[in-house]
Amino acid sequence: MTTRGDPKIWLRFTPAERIGRSMVYIIAAIAVVWSARTIEIIPEFLYDAPQQTADLFQRMWPFDIKYWPFVWKTLVETFHIATLGTILAIMMALPLAFLAARNFTSNAMLRWTAQFIFVSSRSVNSLIWALLFVAIFGPGAVAGVLSIAVRSIGFVGKLFGEALEEAQAGPIEALTATGASKPAILIKGYWPQTEPAFWSIALLRWDINIRESAVLGLVGAGGIGVALDAALNNLYWDQVGLILATILAVVVITEIVTSSIRSRII
């Protein structure tokens, strides 16, 4: 750093800061170089990539309209999977979020358990959860709903738990001082403060789940992915094109809907 005696020396960071940052940069650089060098990329595949891509789009157009009734049916199923999955996830995540929030639960063991459930839920992708649930419940929408639900618990629980921890202590202490019961404190103290966060989290996750549930069918967990899987296996690219266009439209609509709701409630 600087002293009055030697004013010309000026460094942006303290030595400790410099070391910390440099370490991160160096490790990042090593990681990238290591990855790039050991990964095998077959150049021959790259040469005809533009051709293949052009070919892909040519085969997609015109869409196979005859496939539409089936696409529509699976699309509706996708919507149900995403929505039910989100509702189910919220029902399971809310109690856990209260367990995980430091200002609500004082027992460290309980908090730690809730955190562990969140991390496990988030670490495993919804597609992998779907694999497990298909093995248990057989192919179909049930597996889809459960995999969406289980995958979303961690997301909803973690974010809502954080929102709870940010809740101001003042109103809650005031309620506690009146001798209110724990459920009363919860409904009149925490809920009003965290409700906007709750809806924003729920909407955000629902939006994500619409996208996620579109692929679950690839492993047999229902929804539009089933139609996609069938089309891909048969190499019917004109059907694939139709499905992708449908998903694109749904995603755009979902985005518009969620953002308009969000602007109204938050």
Partner: peptide
Amino acid sequence: VKAVGFGVL
């Protein structure tokens, strides 16, 4: 996968 083939790329 269709465009650049199977694999990490």
